[in-house]
């Protein structure tokens, strides 16, 4: 498919040169990327909220505090280097989750019980 898309979307200013073309550059001194997880006051678990760059874990937590909890969104922060996160592969989703598909007896609704029984 050879569609050239280059102009005319809101917030998207037309131009011949589009962003996204790597620029030649010197040695990398980018701070590592961290994924941020936050648990809210009533929350049972930490939820992924986004990511940020920071020189070390301490700085990542402080920046996460500034960026992701400005409105008291959380009372606990986890940060983990993005490179340490391993994800399942989307193209294997079929086989990966298939074993659970035919086990409806794992759900309480599978069992037919008399209406007389309550609280079960």
């Amino acid at each position: 498919m050879n569609t050239s898309i280059r102009r005319f979307f809101y917030g998207d200013i037309p131009g011949q040169e589009s962003a996204g073309t790597p620029v030649p550059q010197g040695p990398k001194n980018d701070w590592p990327l961290w994924e941020v997880f936050i648990r809210s006051k009533q929350g049972l678990d930490h939820k992924h909220v986004g990511s940020l760059h920071a020189a070390d874990a301490q700085m990542a937590i402080e920046n996460a505090r500034d960026v992701y909890t400005r409105r008291q969104e959380g009372i606990s922060i986890w940060v983990v280097k993005s490179q340490n996160i391993h994800a399942s592969r989307p193209e294997e989703a079929g086989e990966l989750y298939d074993p659970a598909a035919d086990k409806i007896y794992r759900h309480p609704t599978f069992y037919d019980l008399p209406d007389a029984i309550s609280h079960m």
Partner: peptide, 10 residues
């Protein structure tokens, strides 16, 4: 990918 990179970065 390119369209998204351009639009999101802008």
């Amino acid at each position: 990918r390119k369209t998204n990179i351009r639009q999101i970065s802008q």
